[in-house]
Amino acid sequence: MMDFNTIGQKTFNLSTKGVKKVNTYKIKIDHDRINRRIKLNNISKVVFSLSTVFALIVLAILLYRIGVQSYGWLNFKFLTKNLSIFPEKAGIYGAIIGTVGLMLIVIPVTLVLGVATAIYLEEYATRGKMQAFIKINISNLASVPSVIFGLLGLTVFSRMLNLGSSILAGGLTMSLLVLPIVVVSSQEAIKAVPNFLREASYAMGANKWTTVRKVVLPVAIPGILTGSILALSRAIGETAPLVVLGIPTLILRIPKTIMDDFTALPIQIYYWTLDTVLTAEYANLAAATIVVLLLVLFIMNSFAIVIRNKFQKRF
């Protein structure tokens, strides 16, 4: 076995232009120091991994707690009954209908606006000031707090256009909120379409719109869908803008048209959580509603992941 210490005491002979110089390097290897460094490395590895796991533990506790609290409250009756001031009789049917109504507005509005904007930015806009301006705009819009969108909706949709706190007002507000997500993800999807496909189409005498419609969009659609589903799941869970629009606390009537007042799943969670001070059972109702909301989101996200995996890397 060679002693590592001797390695550091080798003598190097470096000769330059006939002048014989002898440089002697003595490197003393400090075993204690190396061991300390390795130990520190191992300790930090544990600390770092624990930090990562910390997030998971919290997630697990959160899910467990909510599951326990909702146990016994989440049943078929809960899903099909309407709101009531008596916790035992209360259900979230109205909130489910409200959330579905919101989606019926958000899906077409964001898809048309978002995909069209993305097509403009990626396929039509020349790399100039206009494109840069719109791009900065969208990225800034994505970082505006949702409560501000609530104020915009309150002023423009509720008051100016007199839509009140209807499904339409809520849906339009939500659409503007998630629009940047749809735009950015659609842009990514369109960017990912290889340029040689566009070239092939142009070389066949296709014009731009034909190329976009027949070649670019069909290839980009899985990506656009994935992004849109994620945007939609953001819209389903958002609470603040709807609260700002002034959704009434207790709505016993099921909305029939998009002009009706409504309540939605997150709103219901909010009001029930606030009211736990009055009636402790409301916490169970809130937890049960959260389970429903999370299940919906889970299904949507799984769907998005399935689409993403199925269509990934085709070229």
Binding site: L59, L62, I66, L230, S233, R234, I236, G237, E238, T239, A240, P266, I269, Y270, T273, A286, A287, I290, L293, L294, L297, N301
Partner: peptide, 9 residues
């Protein structure tokens, strides 16, 4: 991806 209302609760 968990809605903030859930964190609030």
């Amino acid at each position: 991806g968990i809605p903030t209302i859930v964190y609030g609760f």
